[in-house]
Design a protein around this nucleic acid. Sequence first.
DNA 1: ATGAAAGCGCTAACAA
DNA 2: TTGTTAGCGCTTTCAT
Lengths: 346, 346
Amino acid sequence: MATRSRPTIREVAALAGVSHQTVSRVINGSERVNADTRERVEIAITELGYQPNAIARSMARGRTYTLACIAPNLTDFTYASIIEGAEIESRSQGYFLLTASAPDEKNFNTLIEQLFGSRRAEGLLVITPYIDHQHTQPHHDVPTVYVGADPHQEHTSLVTLDNTAAGLLATQHLIELGHLRIAHIIGPRIEDSAQDRLEGYRTALDIAGLCPDLRLIVEGDWSATSGYRAVNRLYDQKVSFSAIFAQNDRMAIGAIRALRELGIKVPDAVSVIGFDDMPLASYFDPPLTTIKQDTLLMGSEAAQLLIRLIEHPEGEKTSIYLPGELVIRHSTATIPSIGDKEVSAK
Amino acid sequence: MATRSRPTIREVAALAGVSHQTVSRVINGSERVNADTRERVEIAITELGYQPNAIARSMARGRTYTLACIAPNLTDFTYASIIEGAEIESRSQGYFLLTASAPDEKNFNTLIEQLFGSRRAEGLLVITPYIDHQHTQPHHDVPTVYVGADPHQEHTSLVTLDNTAAGLLATQHLIELGHLRIAHIIGPRIEDSAQDRLEGYRTALDIAGLCPDLRLIVEGDWSATSGYRAVNRLYDQKVSFSAIFAQNDRMAIGAIRALRELGIKVPDAVSVIGFDDMPLASYFDPPLTTIKQDTLLMGSEAAQLLIRLIEHPEGEKTSIYLPGELVIRHSTATIPSIGDKEVSAK
DNA sequence: ATGAAAGCGCTAACAA
DNA sequence: TTGTTAGCGCTTTCAT
């Protein structure tokens, strides 16, 4: 009974006593098929357990119904959940998602070549924290949607957090708590999101009429260690502050550890706000106040955009900016009324 | 100059003045081609920027060079890094990896149908914490490798942590520190890894001649909250213990929080060891002692196994058990010499 | 060493 | 409404 290879459209046709083309019509839901013919075909299909071969279909239609998603890595929670969102949305629309990591430019280019030179995938989702010359180069006229970074240029589709607004939100939260000297641990300056969040920070100070102090701004690399070092640097330079806005949760966690080691209580003496709302953010000590981004939604919106781009190439390029949400936990508090609790030059 | 569609093998052939078959031989590295013919063809290839169409190739060869990887989700760090390991290995061997999440059985089955009914992928990597009837059903004679769970049955290829040995390792670490009453927060009982780690725990007690106490074993669901609740349950039931072995880091973190709220110092009064070595495990308070598993390696080994299975279907099924590694940080310490520091019935 | 012919499993264009 | 004929771009016989 067991057949080695799967049945083809012709075997189904033979069994149903019709031409293979009629079978094709049935499996493609064409209207131009008699009800009883259709039924005969459908019976044959179930009889043989026939399923269309996707490769042959791709071959004939010139379409692969496959999207590719490239991220610097697959493990970072933010990337992973964008990918998950994109994958679920893609699949619900009949596309599969090929995932790949490309930690650097060389890998990125190789990957693009492999994926699109061979026409394996129809569209590209680029998850990247920064847009450089490299990433904005159009490749093989591949429909592309960027997620997570804003190239600030025309003719690109993208989905990203409204980083400027979110940076503003975070900073204003601290200002509302009465903080006047807010240190800002930023991500790498070359990354767009770091720049945009910084702009939000500056705008918030501006609106509040606070005096910006360049010494309060320290660059990190998103790692907890860099947050830790940032605080020590501020301390060594005797820069006084009563609050810290870290551009991601990991740096915030590192900062809190450094403060603790310096004997500075969070949030009693210094408030700390993070960014991302990573898993277990609520389980750190103290539970982290942060800006949450809906990364699943980002991924899903990006996939939608990409599919629209593929199916309607003549359509407009679209940019979607998602809002960040302030999640207040216990790492921020009102500024200590007694001045001596503030960190300051000794 | 711009051509709308990409050049085909025939255009290259025409330009090189040979038959398309010769071009095929060149791009496939056949020996049976004259050196100068080959050169002419290669020039034509670069001239036209020709790249073979992967779909057409798949069609003709009956191979897709695509693997599929299914995990309950894509965001859990453990899963994500297995996937990343698998993806890198796959690509280095000329395969692409299709990633999909299937949170439940229904999704899992649908996905398998979509992927293999249509012959889109050639092999399957199943990342699953447990093996039930469902997962072990062979689907469409698809070459399959399981990652992360041991079905304990013949004729399956799998890669997993040696959970029993790792459970033993964790427990022995606590025993060596002098702990006699070790609570054990386990994962869901239906999951293989939970059972295996538990077995390691029991064996360690046995070896040390310690008396097992069923009341010390509490079931969680891997979440931090469940670890938190587990400790409170132990406390409410007045079960005394001086150490906790939690089967994952999240539950360990939850447990530590509960202990802190109860005014019990970690590790001074109670030691806690986790499992996984998740990101930032070293940034919790106190930095978490844990069992680290090399998930990247797991993924890469799994992909290797799968590719071998695809390319040599007649080969043996293989099981790979990877060792866990004890990472000692600051959440475990020697048992307090003064008995009154131990948690006990009031 | 090279070319011609056939076909992978399907869809698209045209006929009937 | 249905069937026939051509391909999609490549590889794989089999000749030459």
